[in-house]
Amino acid sequence: MVEQRPLARAFAHLVLALGVLIVAFPIYYTFIASTQTIQTILSPPLPLTPGGQFSENYGAALFSGVGQIGGVSIARLLWNTAVVATAIAVGKIVISILSAFAIVYFRFPGRMVAFWLIFITLMLPVEVRILPTYKVIVDLGLIDTYTGLTLPLMASATATFLFRQFFMTIPAELVEAARIDNAGPMRFLRDILIPLSKTNIAALFVILFIYGWTQYLWPLLITNDSSMNTIVIALKKMVSFTDAETPWNLVMVTAIFAILPPVLVVVLMQRWFVKGLVESEK
Results as ranks from 00 to 15, higher is better:
E3G: 09
A8L: 12
A12K: 05
A12T: 04
V15D: 04
V15L: 15
A17E: 01
L18N: 01
V23C: 09
A24E: 08
F31S: 01
I32P: 09
I41P: 06
L42I: 06
P44D: 06
P47Y: 02
G51A: 11
G51D: 14
F54R: 04
E56C: 01
G59Y: 10
G59W: 10
A60K: 13
A61V: 04
L62K: 12
L62D: 15
I69H: 04
G70E: 05
S73G: 14
S73Y: 03
I74S: 04
A75K: 02
A75F: 12
L77E: 01
L78K: 00
N80C: 05
A82Q: 04
A82K: 00
T86M: 08
A89S: 12
V90L: 14
I95Y: 00
R107N: 13
W116V: 02
I118K: 05
L122M: 13
L122N: 02
M123R: 08
V126K: 11
V128N: 05
V128L: 09
I130K: 11
K135G: 06
K135Y: 02
I137Y: 00
L140G: 13
G141F: 08
D144S: 06
Y146T: 07
T147N: 04
G148W: 01
L149R: 11
T150R: 04
P152E: 15
L153M: 12
L153I: 05
M154E: 02
F161W: 14
Q165H: 07
Q165P: 01
P171M: 04
A172T: 07
A172R: 10
A172K: 03
L174C: 06
V175H: 13
E176K: 07
A178G: 08
A178R: 05
D181M: 11
N182C: 11
A183N: 06
G184N: 15
G184R: 15
P185D: 10
L189M: 09
R190A: 08
L193V: 15
S197M: 03
K198H: 05
T199R: 12
N200H: 05
A202T: 13
A202H: 06
L204Y: 02
F205K: 10
I207H: 01
I210Y: 03
T214H: 02
Q215V: 00
Y216V: 12
L217F: 14
W218S: 00
L220T: 13
L220Q: 10
L221D: 11
I222V: 15
S227H: 13
T230A: 10
T230S: 08
V232S: 11
I233Q: 06
A234F: 01
K237M: 08
M238H: 14
F241R: 14
F241G: 15
A244T: 15
E245T: 11
P247Q: 06
F257P: 15
L260G: 11
P262G: 03
P262T: 07
P262L: 13
V266N: 02
V267A: 15
L268W: 14
Q270M: 11
W272K: 08
F273V: 00
E279K: 09
